[in-house]
């Protein structure tokens, strides 16, 4: 190159090239910093959630002891004497999530076995998207469905005097339907990943499809199945609109699914809808309940992902 720099044009060209190069370098530097800033926003979100929840909860726990909060079984923050036993809200949440978990595990695992082990490829390609539509329907629609369709059926089956309009069973059943595709999709992914050779070996020994499914495929895919279940139940615990619309607003520590309960999320929403002044003790309760909810779902999500990575079988 240096030999061609005798002429004036080449000098100018070289200068222009080096200016352009510098400009490109500067542009890349600025863009890198912008992109890094974008990535930082996700970190700031987490930090923000933790700071907000903890800071407001600290104010709450200055007036109510952590022990009373976590072990009390009566929740009546709006009456006097005020009672802040969060167990009745946690109980409501867990009762609905338990019903949803049973429904989604039964339906989801059954569907996953059928799609992965029995269904021909063409049928599978039709059925899977239909089931996944269930996961895309807004939760407020499920709430409507629970209240106007499932609850009346439950009432005519179990008797109008025994089933309250707002009850845990209706919300749980419908929520189970909602999270079923989560269980079936994740479980099926885990089952499809089990190598053919394992199945072929069992078939060669004369096993039926059911035996191959339950004695070979499910044990090999167990970590994925367990993880799908944990993640789905975590989703059920954090779900708001179904429990708000269909399960009721009565804090109630019960195992009877036909009764009204109030879930943690439903309580948070209920207070937000009211005229609770900012900074009052009632206002701070939603952050304390929110913190507990955050910790519960975070723990389940971490366990779920740990199960996947820890027990994943590596096949070559």
């Amino acid at each position: 190159m240096s030999t061609t720099t005798e002429t004036g044009i080449s000098h100018e060209l070289l200068a222009r090239l080096s200016r352009r190069r510098r400009r490109q370098y500067a542009e890349q530097l600025i863009v890198t910093w912008l992109l890094r800033a974008a990535a930082l926003i996700t970190i700031l979100t987490t930090v923000g959630i933790v700071i907000i929840l903890v800071a407001q909860s600290v104010g709450f726990f200055a007036e109510v002891s952590v022990w009373d909060f976590l072990t009390g079984t009566e929740w009546a923050p709006l009456f006097s004497p005020q009672k802040f036993g969060v167990l009745s809200l946690v109980g409501g949440t867990l009762l609905v999530a338990l019903i949803a978990g049973i429904v989604s595990l039964t339906l989801g695992l059954g569907a996953a076995i059928f799609l992965s082990e029995y269904a021909p490829e063409r049928l599978r390609r039709i059925l899977k998207p239909i089931l996944e539509v269930l996961a895309g329907i807004p939760t407020v629609v499920y709430g409507y469905f629970a209240l106007t369709f499932v609850t009346p059926i439950l009432q005519s089956v179990f008797g109008y005097d025994r089933v309250i309009v707002f009850n845990a069973l209706s919300a749980g059943l419908v929520m189970g339907l909602m999270i079923m595709p989560m269980v079936s999709t994740l479980s099926e992914d885990a089952m499809v990943a089990v190598p053919r050779s394992l199945r072929d070996a069992a078939y060669a020994l004369g096993a039926t499809r059911f035996e191959v499914s339950t004695k070979v495929v499910i044990p090999a895919a167990l970590s994925g199945i367990v993880a799908s279940f944990i993640l789905a139940v975590s989703r059920a615990i954090g779900e708001t609109m179904i429990v708000k619309i269909a399960a009721g607003a009565t804090p109630n520590l019960t195992l009877n699914p036909l009764e009204s309960v109030q879930a943690m999320t439903a309580y948070i929403v209920q207070v937000s809808l009211g005229e609770t002044p900012q900074g009052s003790l009632e206002y701070k309760t939603i952050f304390a309940v929110g913190l507990l909810l955050f910790v519960m779902t975070l723990a389940m999500n971490i366990i779920g992902r740990w199960v996947i990575s820890r027990f994943r079988q590596q096949y070559d």
Partner: peptide, 11 residues
């Protein structure tokens, strides 16, 4: 991705 949506509301 696993944080309940109601928590985002509080944030």
């Amino acid at each position: 991705a696993g944080v309940p949506s109601v928590i985002y509301g509080l944030l």
